[in-house]
Computed example of a mutant assay.
Amino acid sequence: MAPFGKIYSYPGNYRVARTLALAELNGLEVVLDPDFQMGVTNKTPEFLAKFPLGKVPAFESADGSFHLTEGQAIARYVADSGPKAAQLLGADPKTRALIDQWACFAEQELGMHLLLPVRMTLFKIIPFDEARYDQCAANFERALKRLDVALQGGKKFLVGDQLTFADVMVLGPLSLATKVLVDAEMRKAAPNVEGYLKGLLEIPELKKAFGELVLIETRVKA
Results as ranks from 00 to 15, higher is better:
residue 161 D to F: 02
residue 203 I to K: 00
residue 4 F to W: 12
residue 152 Q to F: 03
residue 161 D to M: 04
residue 148 D to N: 13
residue 158 L to F: 00
residue 104 C to T: 07
residue 199 G to K: 03
residue 183 D to E: 07
residue 105 F to G: 04
residue 68 L to R: 08
residue 107 E to T: 10
residue 14 Y to I: 11
residue 143 A to C: 14
residue 70 E to N: 12
residue 196 Y to C: 01
residue 37 Q to C: 12
residue 47 F to G: 00
residue 43 K to M: 09
residue 139 N to D: 15
residue 44 T to E: 09
residue 112 M to W: 07
residue 210 F to C: 05
residue 180 V to L: 02
residue 178 T to G: 07
residue 90 G to R: 04
residue 82 G to W: 08
residue 60 E to I: 06
residue 3 P to V: 01
residue 94 K to D: 15
residue 44 T to M: 06
residue 19 T to P: 07
residue 86 A to I: 13
residue 137 A to C: 14
residue 15 R to S: 08
residue 84 K to Q: 15
residue 113 H to R: 04
residue 59 F to I: 07
residue 67 H to F: 11
residue 180 V to I: 14
residue 107 E to M: 08
residue 117 P to G: 02
residue 106 A to L: 06
residue 28 L to E: 05
residue 102 W to A: 03
residue 9 S to V: 04
residue 145 K to P: 12
residue 21 A to N: 05
residue 67 H to M: 03
residue 81 S to V: 10
residue 169 M to R: 08
residue 76 R to E: 10
residue 62 A to E: 01
residue 104 C to F: 10
residue 35 D to S: 13
residue 213 L to V: 04
residue 134 D to M: 13
residue 192 N to I: 05
residue 208 K to D: 13
residue 101 Q to G: 01
residue 150 A to W: 00
residue 50 K to E: 09
residue 77 Y to W: 09
residue 166 A to S: 14
residue 36 F to Y: 11
residue 53 L to E: 12
residue 91 A to R: 12
residue 107 E to W: 02
residue 116 L to K: 05
residue 184 A to M: 10
residue 119 R to K: 13
residue 212 E to H: 05
residue 83 P to H: 14
residue 216 I to P: 09
residue 222 A to D: 15
residue 206 L to A: 11
residue 220 V to L: 09
residue 157 F to R: 01
residue 75 A to W: 00
residue 220 V to W: 04
residue 52 P to R: 00
residue 2 A to S: 13
residue 42 N to Q: 02
residue 134 D to L: 14
residue 195 G to I: 05
residue 184 A to D: 13
residue 150 A to S: 13
residue 126 I to A: 11
residue 164 T to H: 00
residue 96 R to G: 14
residue 20 L to Q: 05
residue 127 P to G: 04
residue 45 P to R: 08
residue 166 A to G: 14
residue 160 G to K: 05
residue 102 W to V: 06
residue 221 K to E: 15
residue 217 E to D: 15
residue 122 L to M: 12
residue 188 K to M: 03
residue 128 F to M: 06
residue 50 K to Q: 12
residue 175 S to L: 06
residue 143 A to K: 03
residue 129 D to M: 10
residue 112 M to P: 01
residue 148 D to Q: 02
residue 82 G to M: 10
residue 104 C to P: 02
residue 31 V to M: 00
residue 9 S to C: 07
residue 99 I to R: 06
residue 220 V to S: 05
residue 73 A to P: 08
residue 188 K to P: 06
residue 137 A to D: 01
residue 98 L to V: 14
residue 130 E to K: 14
residue 57 P to S: 07
residue 112 M to A: 12
residue 52 P to N: 01
residue 146 R to E: 13
residue 65 S to C: 06
